[in-house]
């Protein structure tokens, strides 16, 4: 058991709430996404139900995105996503060296987590790109696909429905890949379940 002194409060309630709503939303979106795209091979539910469920859950994930955005910007905590630019490249190299070499040797993680600096530079860059560019792109293309006729003007401006769908589908595959890697990296804490527990309790063990 870890003593309380060793525990660091890193995930406030809104962040944990956002994270788990997002996680469950993504699972359902991916499941229904497969059903919609491969209706001839997958028969989990009718296509009509899959589309309806995909739309509703998509709207929840969109609303949830604004919880994240509101929390991080209103509290100023968004700065945890802003890199320390002069040291960014060496930090990234150090972190890549750790995952690609040091971890096999048993070296400690070069990133020491604090409540003000909870992401290692790779996490920071990945999450920043996802939350500021990739997820919004998925949300916007999803909304366009939800109301094709209503957003026809914007869709045409961007090159037509096929372009919009292509972006949505490629990001769909990206998010599947991301979740696989994300779940694996979550097992690389002080114990296999340490990061998972932290995202439930808010407290991360630190040494």
């Amino acid at each position: 058991m870890s003593s309380k002194e060793n525990m660091l409060y890193v995930h406030p309630v809104p962040v944990r709430l956002w994270h788990w709503i997002n996680a469950s939303g993504f699972i359902v979106l991916i499941g229904t996404g497969f059903q919609i795209r491969y209706a001839e091979s997958i028969h989990l539910m009718s296509l009509n139900h899959a589309i309806t469920l995909h739309n509703y859950i998509g709207l929840i994930v969109v609303a949830n995105y604004f919880i994240w955005l509101g929390f991080y910007f209103s509290t100023g905590k968004i700065r945890i996503y802003v890199p320390d630019f002069p040291r960014l490249i060496p930090q990234i190299i150090t972190q890549v060296r750790y995952y690609g070499y040091g971890i096999f040797k048993g070296d400690p993680n070069p990133h020491a987590m604090t409540s003000q600096n909870k992401f290692n530079p790779l996490q920071q860059q990945a999450y920043l790109a996802i939350m500021i560019f990739i997820l919004p792109a998925q949300i916007i293309t999803g909304i366009f696909l939800w109301r094709i006729a209503g957003y026809e003007e914007y869709i045409n401006l961007l090159g037509g429905i096929k372009i919009i769908d292509t972006v949505h589908v490629l990001l769909f595959f990206f998010f599947i890949s991301f979740i696989i890697v994300h779940c694996y990296l979550s097992t690389l804490g002080s114990s296999m379940l340490a990061h998972f527990k932290a995202m439930v309790t808010g407290y991360e063990e630190h040494h």
Partner: peptide, 12 residues
């Protein structure tokens, strides 16, 4: 055929 797309039906 940029303005015609059916989910699943004409997927790329």
């Amino acid at each position: 055929v940029s303005h015609f797309y059916l989910l699943g039906g004409t997927r790329i």
